[in-house]
Simulated scan of single mutants.
Amino acid sequence: MAGKFRAGRIALGLSAVITVAGCVAEMRNHGYVPSPEDLGQVVLGVDTRDSVIETLGTPTTQGVSGDDTVYYVYKQVRHFGFLEPEILDRQVVAISFSPDGTAQNVERFTLADGRVVALTRRVTDNTVRNTTFLRQLLGNLGRFDAGTLLGE
């Protein structure tokens, strides 16, 4: 009897440890943003795209409309148990280039500068309402015209 009581206490203790371990906040860092000192090395009007990448490292992404902007993105997220992840910090450094290929502007955006973008969902409305596949299949049986099947 004492062995069962001891095994129960061990199981209870293990479940408590697992429960507490699941509630520990986990911090995740994603991406890279150059430090202000590194950004100070970029000379506007002189540095080119290649020299900027050589100085600051490979950008996170580049502009999709051409070679006019590179982006360095960093995000810090806290995961806490089963709760929704919380973004603690977000920084974006955008370096734009003029048409002649030299660095034109360096901008830094933070989480406070962000805006919520409402996405709209456009879905094609289907004409089938509450109809099963079998009902659709059998419903089409009476719609055939013998004249069109025989080529008349």
Rank of each mutant, 00 (worst) to 15 (best):
M1I: 06
G3K: 11
K4I: 00
R6N: 00
R6V: 07
G8N: 05
G8W: 02
G8K: 07
R9G: 03
R9C: 09
R9L: 13
I10N: 05
A11S: 02
L12T: 02
L12H: 06
G13D: 07
L14W: 02
A16V: 15
A16L: 15
T19K: 03
V20I: 10
V20G: 03
A21M: 07
C23R: 06
V24K: 15
V24G: 09
E26K: 10
M27H: 15
N29F: 05
H30S: 14
V33E: 08
P34I: 05
S35L: 06
P36D: 08
E37D: 08
G40E: 15
Q41A: 13
V42N: 02
D47E: 05
V52F: 02
V52L: 04
I53S: 04
I53H: 04
E54L: 14
E54H: 14
E54D: 15
T55Q: 11
L56I: 09
G57Q: 07
G57P: 07
P59S: 10
P59D: 06
P59C: 08
T60A: 05
T60G: 11
T60P: 06
G63P: 05
V64T: 12
S65M: 00
G66E: 08
D67G: 10
D68V: 03
D68Q: 10
T69W: 01
V70G: 04
Y71P: 06
V73S: 03
Y74F: 12
Q76I: 10
V77K: 01
R78P: 03
R78F: 00
R78W: 02
H79D: 02
H79C: 03
F80P: 00
L83G: 06
E84S: 09
E84A: 11
E84Y: 08
E86S: 10
L88T: 04
D89E: 13
D89S: 14
D89H: 14
R90S: 08
Q91M: 10
V92M: 14
V92D: 12
V92N: 08
A94G: 01
A94M: 09
I95N: 02
S96T: 05
F97H: 04
S98V: 00
S98W: 00
S98N: 04
P99E: 14
D100N: 02
D100Q: 04
T102N: 00
A103S: 05
A103K: 03
Q104D: 09
N105W: 01
V106Q: 01
E107H: 01
F109S: 08
T110S: 14
T110W: 05
T110H: 04
L111Q: 12
A112W: 03
D113G: 09
V116L: 07
V117L: 15
V117K: 13
V117S: 15
V123A: 13
V123K: 14
T124K: 15
T124M: 13
D125R: 00
T127N: 10
V128G: 01
V128Q: 07
N130V: 08
N130E: 10
N130D: 15
T131K: 07
T131A: 12
T132Q: 11
L134T: 12
Q136T: 06
G139H: 03
G139S: 07
N140D: 12
L141S: 07
L141V: 13
G142M: 05
R143F: 11
R143V: 12
D145T: 09
T148S: 15
L149I: 12
L150I: 13
L150C: 11
E152Q: 09
E152F: 12
